[in-house]
Simulated assay, not measured.
Amino acid sequence: MGCDIHLFAEGYTADVRNNALRNRGPGNRRWKNIEHWYRDDVWADLRIQGDGGFSRRDLIDGHRDYGLFYLLAGVRGEEEEISWPPIAKPRGLPEQMDELVFRYETDEMEIGSIDCHDLSWLTLRELKESGYGGRLPLKGWVREDEYEKMLEFDAAGKPYQLAFCDEKSRETPEAGLVYREWLGYLNLNLTMLISRLEALKEEWRIKSDDEVRIVFWFDN
């Protein structure tokens, strides 16, 4: 059975209108979804229908990336067979989150259209401090031609995610694979996610990595 992710970016910030930050002082700040733009007049009382009011940016381009799911919350992977632990085990939804997104998503969950599991959240600081978004010392079994391609990309300064069988995996490597050690990217979707969160942080003029986060869950 396939597994998908529902992922939203939130910032601890003031209201926004016409894509420009309005200065109402620190008392107006709250956790708000920051990868959607929607009208903010009476937004908390608005009962949206479908995607009404939203213009969404997909932070991971709709990828069903089980490697990413594992790194975010340990979903679709086993620590005994992977050299890197998840950034954090699932924590549930935060105490306070964007109410418009919460209403929309929990409405779907309540009517049974989402088999929801492993709800969690992570701050931009946690994502960055994991180190998983940058180059890491990696080792395992790879295809020789793919390894050579990765070296070519690396020499040109281009990021490349090399598929490999981890050295801790209990599976017998396929015939034709060779063991290699290299410096490379573990998951480029996570690298892209961090980069896009950094851009949202700047766009919303948020100062701290602790005030930008992703809220997410999975469904089968």
Rank of each mutant, 00 (worst) to 15 (best):
I206W: 10
E99R: 04
G140K: 12
M1L: 05
R125Y: 07
M109V: 00
A14Y: 03
R205F: 10
E80Y: 01
V212D: 06
V178I: 15
D15Y: 06
G133M: 12
R125S: 14
E126C: 05
L190Y: 01
M109K: 01
Y38R: 04
I82R: 15
E146W: 14
L119C: 13
E78S: 09
L177I: 03
R103E: 01
G176L: 08
V42L: 13
D15H: 07
E35S: 15
S130M: 11
L7S: 02
L186Q: 07
V215T: 10
L46R: 14
A14H: 10
L162H: 01
E146L: 15
L71A: 06
E110Y: 08
L122F: 04
L100I: 10
R22I: 14
N33T: 12
A14C: 09
G184T: 01
P86W: 06
D15A: 12
L59A: 04
E80D: 13
M150T: 01
D210I: 04
D4P: 02
T123G: 06
L59H: 04
F8W: 15
A155Y: 06
Y12S: 01
I114A: 08
C3D: 08
L127M: 12
F54Y: 11
D4F: 11
I60C: 02
P94S: 09
Y104M: 00
R47L: 12
I48P: 02
I206C: 09
E79F: 06
E35D: 12
L193M: 03
L127N: 09
R47K: 14
V212A: 04
G92T: 05
Y147M: 13
L186G: 05
D118W: 00
N18H: 13
L21V: 14
N23G: 07
N187P: 03
L193K: 05
L151W: 06
F218H: 03
E35L: 09
A155K: 14
L21I: 12
D118L: 00
M1W: 05
R143I: 14
C116F: 03
P94Y: 04
L183K: 12
W217Y: 15
Y132H: 15
L100F: 03
Y147C: 04
P90K: 04
G112V: 02
L122H: 09
V101F: 11
K207F: 06
G62P: 01
E110I: 01
D4L: 09
A163N: 10
Q96E: 15
E211H: 12
D40K: 08
K32E: 10
L46K: 12
D210E: 13
E129T: 15
V212N: 02
G176V: 06
N33Y: 06
F8G: 00
D154R: 04
L100T: 14
L68Q: 05
I48H: 05
R29P: 00
D45Q: 11
D65M: 07
